[in-house]
């Protein structure tokens, strides 16, 4: 606190701004400003924390799609409640997201055109989820597909897998 008592002027400097010593008032002002800054930052962080919910009541991300025999070969089945297509080819099963990668609209499977179409901005995908046309930036992701112990298909929407991966039953 002795900065005002020990002047540290450098001789030869002309600019009065530069050679001005830090007075007690300046020092206290700086401290007060810093304290306000820290308090403001802290309040912001705490508020953002408060506004981010820790527990969410959202639908589960894992679900049973049913028995493999329910899906005929070479078919695309839309599971409406879960926004997922379960596709069965000759090679096996895979699950494709029905949520358009563009802006989150729910796509529709059009069997007559053999493609998946988004109603919002006109994106079109193949049954593998590859984009054919439209503004979607990415293909539709594939979700992990497993068989439960009692022989049911289990889709995990938190886990995306490669497009080449199919479940053989």
């Amino acid at each position: 606190m002795s900065s005002s008592d020990t002047p540290s002027e450098k001789p030869g400097q002309q600019n009065p701004e530069a050679e001005a010593e830090v007075t007690r008032r300046d020092f206290l002002n700086e401290i007060a400003a810093a304290a306000l800054g820290v308090a403001g930052l802290g309040a912001t962080v705490v508020t953002i924390k408060y506004l981010s919910p820790n527990v969410l009541f959202e639908p589960p991300t894992q679900f049973r799609a049913g028995s493999p025999d329910d899906f005929p070969v070479n078919s695309v089945t839309f599971i409406r409640d879960q926004e997922v297509y379960v596709v069965r080819t000759l090679a096996g099963f895979y699950a494709v997201s029905a949520v358009c990668t563009h802006l989150g609209c729910i796509t529709q499977w059009k069997p007559e055109d053999d493609q998946i179409e988004c109603p919002c901005h006109g994106s079109k995908f193949t049954r593998e989820g590859t984009k054919i046309a439209g503004p979607a930036p990415r293909p539709l992701p594939h979700f992990a597909l497993r068989l439960t112990a009692d022989g049911q298909l289990l889709v995990d929407k938190l886990e995306t897998v490669k497009e080449t991966q199919v479940l053989k039953v």
Binding site: L51, P53, L56, F57, E58, P59
Partner: peptide, 8 residues
């Protein structure tokens, strides 16, 4: 207030 458009 979550990942989906719901009550929050």
């Amino acid at each position: 207030g979550g990942n989906i458009i719901g009550e929050n």
